[in-house]
Write a protein that binds this DNA or RNA. Structure first.
Length: 424
RNA sequence: GGACGGGUGGCCGAGUGGUUGAAGGCACCGGUCUCGAAAACCGGCAUACCGGCAACGGUAUCGUGAGUUCGAAUCUCACCCCGUCCGCCA
């Protein structure tokens, strides 16, 4: 959600962001309609409020006359007629406002100045870490996992459907170990507060983080309850402080939460369908930070470094990619993707996406802070990043650490949790 | 799932149809007093939108939404949430 005043006074900023997102052509008509709607909206508000003022004045006069013992019958009749007119004007106002806000809700966030224009091809690798294992003589992870008996895709498909997972034995224990490893790293070393949150959320939460209304068809819903399975812990964690005012002195605040994540992946049929690359339910430890506006850019760098630490401790080669405008998510103002090298499939796999949302989510969710220096409450900046998503990480681990004899070496930091230094 | 009670400003809390955006208190800000502080006292203190260069004016907001009424925090209905008791249950 944008500041409506900014929208009115600096439409050039929005146009620039849309251009860098490569969405200007697609959204220019929306923008023009919004600008036209804004005018009729204001006219409707003015008309309705003027009529309401008349109506209020009549009510006051009725009261005065009644107290004075005078007859108010004619006035009451006048008020009645005014009320009918008012109803009409109010309806027009409501229609104009609804049309305008629903249109504005479709506009993506502005972009920070250093986000490159263009689509995926304009993404920039900012830095790399580790030595990628050559993509030769390494089997893809689904073959390794099947051979080790730690993943049972056919039975997962039987009990739930394609795109769902059953880990078994050390595979299941690997998931559990990753959960502990990541949460310990972020809470003990990086200072995050650990949260355990609902796996379902309501509409207001989905709107707050901007999954709704634009991406409703990506979500699994519990129809009878009007609740939705979380696509990421970002939703419950960011909405934790919805409609609240935080003390400025308590910022920045940092939360780490494990949750299962559910995504319909509508429209992604046929892409990365094998193995662990794209599934409907996966596990993730999510990092969320609340910041004042001035510190948010630095907070994004810090958050990204915390997600990177996971990969470093696991000894996995990765690269940090600054997404171009066209690849940057709807609500994000700037995003770094962390891509881990998976030699078996010969691809860099996105295991984390670290973003700053400026005040875009905070407006929608009405999350404010009272500046420590005093002054009016202002919207916080929200940030989040995966730290990290499990399935693709597991794929990279299996492919990176497979030995010639078919077994898989376990990185040091997972040995205690797994109770072994070798799978197979 | 059933019965009853309740949701008012940053917080607590009055208010059951008419100058109530809403008493009072706390917190916060400014001042007087003081060497300084506390206390006491005085004053200030919601947000959003619309119009206006501005002073200022208007409108909305008492859980949410609809309704009754000339007029709703106050009456009606639905829903949400919290509490207490009962039932059920891992």
């Amino acid at each position: 959600m944008h500041d409506l005043r900014l929208l009115r006074e600096r439409p050039d900023l929005l146009r620039d962001a849309l251009r860098r997102r490569g969405a200007l052509d697609a959204l220019a008509p929306t923008l023009e309609r919004a600008e036209a709607l804004e005018r009729s909206r204001r006219e409707a508000i003015r008309a309705a409020e003027a009529k309401r003022a008349d109506s209020n004045a009549i009510s006051q006069e009725v009261r005065r006359r009644k107290q004075a013992g005078d007859d108010a019958g004619a006035l009451i009749e006048q008020g009645r007629r005014l009320g009918a007119e008012l109803e009409q004007l109010d309806r027009e106002r409501a229609d104009a406002e609804a049309a305008y806000t629903s249109l504005v809700a479709e506009l993506p966030n502005l972009l920070l100045a250093d986000v490159p224009a263009g689509g995926e091809e304009a993404n920039r690798v900012i830095r790399s870490w580790g030595t990628p294992r050559p993509a030769t003589a390494v089997r893809p992870h689904w073959e390794i996992a099947e051979a080790l008996g730690i993943l049972d895709l056919p039975r997962a498909a039987k009990v739930a459907g394609s795109g769902f997972l059953v880990f078994r034995g050390l595979g299941a224990r690997l998931v559990r170990s990753l959960m502990s490893f990541m949460l310990d790293l972020h809470t003990i070393t990086h200072g995050y507060e650990e949260l355990w949150v609902p796996a379902v959320v309501n509409r207001a939460s989905m709107f707050g983080t901007a999954q709704f209304p634009k991406f409703e068809d990506e979500q699994y819903g519990l129809v009878a309850e009007d609740l939705f399975l979380v696509p990421t812990a970002e939703v419950p964690v960011t909405n934790l402080y919805r409609d609240e005012i935080l003390e400025g002195a308590t910022l920045p605040r940092a939360f780490a939460a494990y949750s299962p994540c559910f995504r319909r992946e509508a429209g992604a049929h046929g892409k990365d369908t094998r193995g662990l690359l794209r599934v409907h339910q996966f596990d993730k430890v999510e990092l969320v930070r609340y910041s004042t506006p001035e510190h948010a850019p630095a907070q994004l760098e810090l958050l990204t470094s915390h997600a990177e630490a996971v990969l470093q401790q696991l000894g996995l080669a990765y690269r940090v990619v600054l997404l171009a405008g066209g690849d940057t998510g709807f609500a994000s103002a700037k995003t770094y993707d962390l891509e881990v090298w998976a030699p078996g499939v010969g691809k860099w796999l996105e295991v984390s996406s670290c973003s700053t949302f400026t005040d875009f989510q905070a407006r929608r969710a009405n999350i404010r802070y009272r500046p420590a220096a005093g002054g009016k409450p202002a919207f916080v900046h929200t940030l989040n990043g995966s730290g990290t998503a499990f399935p693709r990480l597991i794929a990279a681990l299996l492919e990176q650490y497979q030995e010639a004899d078919g077994s898989v070496r376990v990185p040091d930091v997972l040995r205690a949790g797994l109770g072994t230094d070798r799978l197979g």
